[in-house]
Design a binder for these strands. Sequence first.
DNA 1: AACTCCTACGTCAACGTTGACGTAACCGGC
DNA 2: GCCGGTTACGTCAACGTTGACGTAGGAGTT
Lengths: 343, 343
Amino acid sequence: MDQAGERREPTMRDVAALAKVSIKTVSRVINGLPGAGTEVTERVRAAARSLGYRPNLTASSLRRADRRSATIGVLFEDLSNPFDAALLRAVEDHARRSGVLVLAGSTEDDHTLQRELLVSLSARRVDGVVVMAAGGHQDALQHERERGTPMVLVDRPPTFGGTDCVTTTNRDSSRAAVLKLAALGHRDIAFLGDRRTLWTSQERYTGYLEGLAQAGLTLREALVRTDLHGVAVAETATAALFDLDRPPTALFTAQNLVTVGAMRVLRARDLHRRVAVIGFDDFPLADLLDPAVTVVRQDVPGIGRKAAELILARIDGDTSPPVHAVVPASLVPRGSGEIAALS
Amino acid sequence: MDQAGERREPTMRDVAALAKVSIKTVSRVINGLPGAGTEVTERVRAAARSLGYRPNLTASSLRRADRRSATIGVLFEDLSNPFDAALLRAVEDHARRSGVLVLAGSTEDDHTLQRELLVSLSARRVDGVVVMAAGGHQDALQHERERGTPMVLVDRPPTFGGTDCVTTTNRDSSRAAVLKLAALGHRDIAFLGDRRTLWTSQERYTGYLEGLAQAGLTLREALVRTDLHGVAVAETATAALFDLDRPPTALFTAQNLVTVGAMRVLRARDLHRRVAVIGFDDFPLADLLDPAVTVVRQDVPGIGRKAAELILARIDGDTSPPVHAVVPASLVPRGSGEIAALS
DNA sequence: AACTCCTACGTCAACGTTGACGTAACCGGC
DNA sequence: GCCGGTTACGTCAACGTTGACGTAGGAGTT
């Protein structure tokens, strides 16, 4: 036994020869179709077992009328982000229950990579694509979609028509977070956000503005920091906020890595017990920090399930109008978001 | 444009008709094989472009001599564990550089699921399988391997022959961690481990024993707690340790979720500044806890790269003897592991 | 001028499977 | 004993592609 394994895989032809039936009868037995007698069925089953026969799905899907590969592609940006990982897992889980496997590919927010990956998936004739990452340009996605590939976008709506998407209550939950901080007496609430090109960032910022307005607070531009991609950048930005003459007394951090960066700075400056923080997106160990971090938690399994349901339905031929599903997020109070403003 | 997309995909035949050449010539041009003139090549390219032709890799691999699907399967246990997520990412990354995509499947430590997944992968004729999760039974893996499928195990060696694996320095690094704690004056060092059925758990426990012996300490069975699967169980076990008459002054937690559980209890009992902790496996935010957690960090990208290299080499026909690659882990001092024993 | 060799194509069959369709045997009914 | 229908098979071609092999025409050699 060596790693290369030069043994030829047994085919239906081999099974047919052993069971002394035609290859078509083998096909019927393997696929559980009617038209095979009890005794023949048993003979074929025994022959298949003894040869270790395994159906070849690629040959089958090449020939079959429906052309299904029972495989979908999932594009994500960065698996090291627990949000992406949990989402992939949820989609994979639901897909597999329908006998569908997942071809996974990370795009690292690279436009060229995304295009190449879509070509690779298309060459393998995936039945559909779930996109959990669609940086600025969606033209590669649009092109693929227009070829007829079923597609579902997660976490941002398509810039082109006829395509489903699943998002969370970015704006509403952000507004609620800001209102909560305002209710605790905070009047200088900073906004720390990820790259402005991201649709979610824009929505969360809009929610922030709506929250301020609704609470009767005026926007201080100096307290708005965006394009914070990654923990390090978020730290720098947070530090700058507290070097202001009138620093914020509360932070609304609109992405989990930003939240982490902000917490680092607060702790380093020993401000973590005085400055309130509410973060968007939960993250592991948020409850173990000091103070535990209050967050807006997205229903990641719910989003994944919805995305899987949508893509599987489309693959099954559902031609109803495109859907924009919104899965509600919830506020999880843990301490950092309950720090009141000093009178 | 609707989601079903009933347009037929253009084939080489269509391209050939438009370019007024034979289908074989199209094949040559698409695959960059010699034997096509400059002018004809251009005509074929133009025709393919204008029809939006995409090669069908499944048909191609069915016919080609090498039978490659340019796809590998990756089985993992739980993507919500950052270790699995990072590993999948590393493998996917390296595979894609070789034009190979990854069919991902989570097994959730379920034996039946693992078997089913292997059948699914086999039906899709993957070129090889990387297994990042192999609970107790490896018979399904062995069966698949004996069919000739190239295979690489990660994080535990195969119980059968002829198969590569990649692991880290479980025993050596565990011994080093215990020795470090002993050097700080700790004499009551507890061991908190994951399920004993896991090979890594056994290795780490062996390293713990070796460390104790080498430091001249005697094993106290009461300080050994195993089969702690998940944060909650780890918390209970840790709490029990500190209800002992002679509680430990240092903990060696042999898995990341166990470490988290232990830290929770230490904090709750206000012991986190007095009891030393070294954990096996790094985890996000370990540096943000109070105190920051000293860990043995596995070189996850290195492990993933090695696994990808091995499987790709085997697929390319490497028939050298099976390899057990060991990727070194390193100790990352952050504070919790540097707490000295009270004299 | 006949020869070999090469280049640039084309033809054909096959990969493993299934849809369309054929057919022999049997059943029940009269 | 013949009809119509059903059951249990089999035959054939095709899915999109490529390996093996064939061939026409031109260039170079003797």
